[in-house]
Deep mutational scan, measured.
Amino acid sequence: LNLKQAKEEAIKELVDAGIAEKYIKLIANAKTVEGVWTLKDEILTFTV
């Protein structure tokens, strides 16, 4: 999975969960695949 694909998957998951745009922007700015997954997990843990 490359960075672009990771971001697309994570953003789709966050949108489906009804997460606010400000958190989705954090994913869009992530620099690594690991960073994308870590941010996604943290956002889902603390906002859902």
Score class of each variant (00 low, 15 high):
E9A: 15
E9T: 11
K22E: 12
A17L: 13
V15P: 00
K22Y: 13
Q5P: 01
E42F: 15
A28P: 02
L39W: 04
E34K: 09
I43T: 01
W37M: 12
K4W: 11
A17H: 09
K22M: 10
T38C: 14
E8D: 09
T45L: 13
K12Y: 04
I11E: 04
A28I: 13
L1V: 11
D16P: 02
E21F: 09
E21G: 08
A6K: 03
F46R: 11
I27V: 08
W37A: 08
K12Q: 08
K31I: 11
A6R: 02
K7R: 08
D41C: 13
K4T: 09
V15R: 15
G35H: 14
G18E: 03
A17P: 01
T45M: 14
V15S: 09
K4A: 13
E13Q: 13
G18L: 04
K7M: 13
V33W: 04
T32P: 00
E34D: 08
L3K: 01
V15A: 08
K40F: 14
V15E: 09
L44Q: 03
L44P: 01
A20R: 05
A30I: 05
A10K: 00
L1P: 09
E34L: 09
L3N: 01
A20P: 15
G18C: 06
N29F: 14
K22I: 11
T47C: 14
L1K: 11
V36E: 00
T47Y: 15
E21L: 12
L39D: 00
I19Y: 07
Y23M: 05
V15G: 05
L39M: 08
L39F: 04
K12D: 03
I24F: 10
L3M: 03
L44N: 03
T32L: 02
T32E: 03
L26D: 03
V36C: 02
V33F: 05
T38P: 01
V15I: 15
K40L: 15
A10T: 04
I27M: 05
I43Y: 05
Q5E: 08
A6Y: 03
N2I: 12
K25I: 13
T47M: 15
V48W: 08
K31V: 12
T38F: 14
K4S: 09
A17S: 06
A30K: 03
L1H: 10
L1C: 10
A6L: 05
A17M: 12
V48H: 14
T47W: 15
E42M: 15
A10H: 00
F46M: 14
L26T: 04
E21M: 13
I19N: 01
E42Q: 14
G35E: 15
A28W: 15
E8A: 13
I24L: 10
Y23L: 06
A10W: 02
A30D: 01
E9V: 14
E21S: 10
V36L: 05
T45V: 07
K25E: 09
L14C: 04
K22R: 11
D16N: 14
N2F: 12
A28C: 15
A28L: 14
T32I: 01
W37F: 10
K12T: 05
E21I: 10
T32K: 02
I27E: 00
K7G: 01
N29D: 12
L39S: 02
A10C: 06
A20F: 04
E13V: 09
T32M: 02
A17F: 08
A28E: 15
V48P: 08
K12S: 06
E42W: 15
D16Q: 14
K12I: 05
G35N: 11
G18Y: 03
L26P: 02
V33G: 01
K7N: 01
T47Q: 11
D41Q: 13
A17C: 07
L3H: 01
W37G: 05
K40T: 07
L1Q: 09
I27Q: 00
N2W: 11
K40E: 02
L44V: 05
K40R: 14
V36A: 02
E34N: 06
Y23D: 02
T47R: 11
K4Q: 14
T38M: 14
N2T: 15
Y23S: 02
A17R: 12
W37T: 07
W37Y: 10
A17D: 02
A30P: 02
I11Q: 04
I24A: 04
K7W: 03
E42D: 07
N29Y: 13
K22C: 13
T32Y: 03
A10E: 01
A30V: 07
I43L: 11
A10F: 02
V33H: 03
V48G: 14
A28G: 07
T38W: 14
E42H: 13
I19K: 03
D16S: 13
A30Y: 02
G35F: 07
V33L: 07
N29S: 12
E8N: 07
K22V: 11
A10Q: 01
I27G: 00
G18K: 06
D16I: 11
V36P: 01
D41M: 15
V15Y: 12
N2L: 14
T47I: 14
L39E: 01
D16F: 12
F46T: 08
K4G: 06
L26V: 05
Y23A: 02
A30F: 02
I11W: 05
L39R: 03
K12G: 04
D41A: 13
I11M: 09
T45D: 07
K4R: 12
T47L: 15
L14K: 00
T47P: 07
I43F: 07
L26C: 10
T32D: 06
Y23K: 02
T38D: 07
K4F: 08
D41E: 12
K31Y: 08
W37K: 12
N29T: 10
E21T: 10
D41H: 13
K25W: 10
E8L: 12
E13A: 11
V48F: 12
A20M: 07
N2K: 13
E8P: 01
A28N: 12
G18W: 03
W37E: 06
V33E: 04
T38G: 08
K4D: 08
V36I: 05
I27C: 02
A28F: 13
K25D: 08
K4E: 13
D16G: 11
Y23H: 04
A30G: 03
D41F: 12
A28D: 11
E8Q: 10
T38I: 14
V33C: 05
I27F: 04
A20I: 06
K12H: 05
E21W: 15
A20T: 07
N2Q: 13
K4V: 09
G35Y: 11
Y23V: 03
E9D: 10
V48Y: 08
E13R: 05
G35T: 10
K4H: 08
D16E: 14
D41W: 14
F46I: 11
E21Q: 09
L14D: 00
Q5F: 08
T45I: 09
E9N: 08
L39G: 01
V33R: 03
L3T: 02
L3C: 03
L44I: 07
E13S: 08
A28T: 09
D41R: 12
A10G: 02
K12V: 04
D41V: 12
